[in-house]
């Protein structure tokens, strides 16, 4: 299967603190990979490095065989229509309605008529079951709805992959299921991605493969069953903690 994203020997420091020492992995087309790890192991930082929101210190990142880690900010704009980012908080623009939030990237990157734009936005809102909330503002939404609106915004341009930054964190079990259903729907439409989470049961429902980050390195890469049966002490400790 075609490799969409390839990360090679990524290193990231914040001042004297090393967050990532040597991160390497690949993401295949339509594949969803779970990125697991304890709090503070730099999972979100890794996602931010991949999409260029943070600069990395060393290493290489390839998207569809093209090296992207050396690109300047404005060169990355086009890439970010193909690799989108779903923020942990949703990061919706609080001065815009849900509809306007989702229409924002559409207006920036696609030249559509008002009717075409409305159809696209309402389609993706239906996908996240929020078509009745289009006129609401982020402050009117619950945490779960904000995350779903954030997912809709990440999906609206039909990217090749989505970087999910803890989309289930802080949600009640019903909303966790809703978010996972949405991620599976995206997956069925061919949109894979990287799912950052601590929640192994949630990862099992969506991911094809799991990666475990510890001490700035990937200490496990493999399928869900392999993860459960691993004899690696770090993996076992993480499994036990769950």
């Amino acid at each position: 299967m075609q490799t969409v994203l390839k990360v090679s020997h990524l290193k990231k420091n914040f001042g004297a603190k090393t967050v990532h020492r040597d991160i390497s992995f690949e993401l295949k087309k339509s594949e969803t990979v779970g990125l697991l790890g304890n709090s503070g192991t730099g999972k979100s930082v890794l996602l931010r490095c991949l999409i260029g929101l943070e600069t990395m210190d060393e290493g290489e990142v390839y998207f569809n065989q093209t090296r992207i880690d050396l690109w300047q900010e404005e060169e990355l704009f086009e890439l970010r229509t193909k690799m989108s980012y779903a923020f942990q908080s949703g990061a919706l623009f609080d001065s815009l309605s849900v509809y306007e939030n989702i229409a924002y990237p559409v207006r920036e990157h696609l030249k559509l008529s008002a009717a075409e734009e409305e159809k696209l936005v309402m389609d993706v809102l239906r996908l996240v079951r929020m078509e009745d909330a289009a006129h609401l503002f982020p402050s009117d939404l619950s945490g779960g709805m904000q995350k779903r609106a954030g997912l809709a915004r990440a999906m609206v341009l039909k990217p090749e992959i989505i970087l999910y930054d803890e989309p289930t964190a802080g949600l009640d079990p019903v909303n966790v299921e809703n978010v996972l259903d949405i991620m599976n729907t995206f997956k069925k439409r061919g949109v894979g991605g990287i799912f950052v989470t601590h929640d192994i049961p949630a990862a099992k429902k969506v991911c094809d493969r799991l990666l475990l980050v510890d001490s700035g390195k990937i200490v496990f890469s493999g399928g869900i069953r392999e993860f459960e049966e691993s004899t690696d002490p770090v993996v076992q400790k993480f499994n036990m903690a769950q």
């Binding site: 931010r48 999409i51 260029g52 929101l53 900010e73 404005e74 990355l76 704009f77 086009e78 890439l79 970010r80 229509t81 989108s84 980012y85 923020f87 908080s89 990061a91 919706l92 623009f93 609080d94 924002y104 990237p105 920036e108 990157h109 915004r153």
Partner: peptide, 14 residues
């Protein structure tokens, strides 16, 4: 502080 600036960048705008 609410990551909206990051969202502007992540959505491919400056």
């Amino acid at each position: 502080v609410s990551q909206q600036i990051d969202a502007i960048r992540a959505l491919g705008t400056s």
